[in-house]
């Protein structure tokens, strides 16, 4: 007996049972049977056809007019069959897309695996978590032969794949202009030109770019419309805003970016973040910048990496473990 016959016999016995006694139990068996048919990709018109063949066997003298009506029903079901098959193929395409996104996300992780450099006299902490599979946040450290370290932190508008693709473009542009690394303003001007030519009109990128020179303990930086970070003055034990003036990347062809400088003394910190940090909403409202500062202060006795990890954990709790936006936090601290 092949599958078809088995199916036929099974259906026949369930139907016979039901015709004799209309019990809930038999109905339930019918439901189970239909689930199995779906698993075996039996189309709606095949199901009706099965029913009709069983009926014809059980009631050989079924009136011709009724038989004709079944043919009519079969014809009707063909449309449903098309819809069903379309659904099936969409489902398999969706699975395929999902696995492709998974691969892309892994690639992105490799691409951006921002190894923290080892800079003498500098304690570095960095964390970046995507809200969805792929991140529109970006941070990147580069160390040169003079032991100078540049750091970029960027946020691409929107989330998901378009943002991630756009961010890859940023990374390649940054990698291809190494001679500019020492001049934060020039780096942003160059990036702005590239972004302006290559993004959708509704898209833009915010970026903070800094360079730390350990020989003079100076941090040079510029910003393109990025959420301001903080500077922690250890002697005064005060946090202040790390203000930068500059238009987001990708809006206006000719934009220049002002460069700023801060000298770091022992235990001073530079704190950089993405707006996912300050724009996140807990159940009780927005998380204010003061609260972020308070969190950093709470863990200030820990290492830079431990601080960013703890702040992330705390924000995650506040948002009930559901990130709404990509999250990036980077801390540089001059060691004593």
């Amino acid at each position: 007996m092949d599958d078809r016959d088995l199916q036929y016999q099974k259906y026949k016995s369930i139907l016979e049972n039901y015709l004799q006694e209309q019990s809930e139990q038999t109905l339930y068996k019918g439901q189970q049977f239909s689930r199995k048919m779906i698993e075996q990709k039996i189309s709606p018109e095949e199901a009706v056809s099965l029913h009709v063949s069983v009926l014809e066997e059980l009631f050989p003298d079924i009136p011709q007019r009724l038989k004709n009506s079944y043919d009519f029903l079969l014809e009707m079901m063909i449309g449903y069959g098309f819809a069903y098959r379309e659904h099936q193929s969409l489902r398999s395409r969706q699975q395929q897309l999902e696995s492709e996104i998974e691969i892309a996300a892994n690639m992105q992780q490799t691409l951006l695996a921002g190894d923290k450099p080892d800079v003498k006299g500098l304690d570095i902490g960095a964390i970046s978590k995507p809200a969805q599979k792929m991140s529109g946040d970006y941070y990147h450290f580069v160390q040169d032969e003079n032991n100078c370290m540049s750091v970029a932190i960027a946020d691409v508008i929107g989330k998901g794949i378009p943002a991630a693709l756009c961010m890859s473009m940023i990374k390649y542009t940054m990698d291809s202009a190494p001679e500019q690394r020492m001049q934060p303003g020039a780096v942003l001007e160059n990036l702005n030109r590239v972004v302006e030519q290559n993004v959708d009109p509704n898209m833009f990128i915010t970026m903070f770019y800094g360079l730390y020179d350990p020989r003079v303990h100076s941090f040079y930086y510029a910003g393109a419309g990025h959420e301001p970070g903080f500077f922690y003055d250890a002697e005064k034990d005060e946090f202040e805003e790390l203000y930068t003036k500059g238009l987001v990347l990708g809006v206006s062809k000719k934009t220049s970016y002002q460069e700023y400088q801060r000298v770091l003394y022992g235990n001073d910190m530079v704190i950089m973040l993405s707006d996912g940090v300050t724009e996140c909403r807990s159940s009780s409202g927005f998380i204010e910048r003061d609260e972020i500062v308070a969190m950093i202060r709470k863990y200030i006795h820990l290492s830079a990496q431990e601080i960013v990890d703890e702040v992330y954990r705390e924000l995650e709790r506040l948002q009930e473990f559901e990130l709404r936006d990509d999250f990036t936090l980077v801390i540089l601290r001059r060691e004593v």
Binding site: D155, D200, P201
Partner: peptide
């Protein structure tokens, strides 16, 4: 308003 909202105004400005 989030950055996507700002993006709409950037698009409108360009247009």
């Amino acid at each position: 308003m989030d950055s996507t909202g700002l993006g709409v105004f950037v698009g409108a400005l360009k247009s």
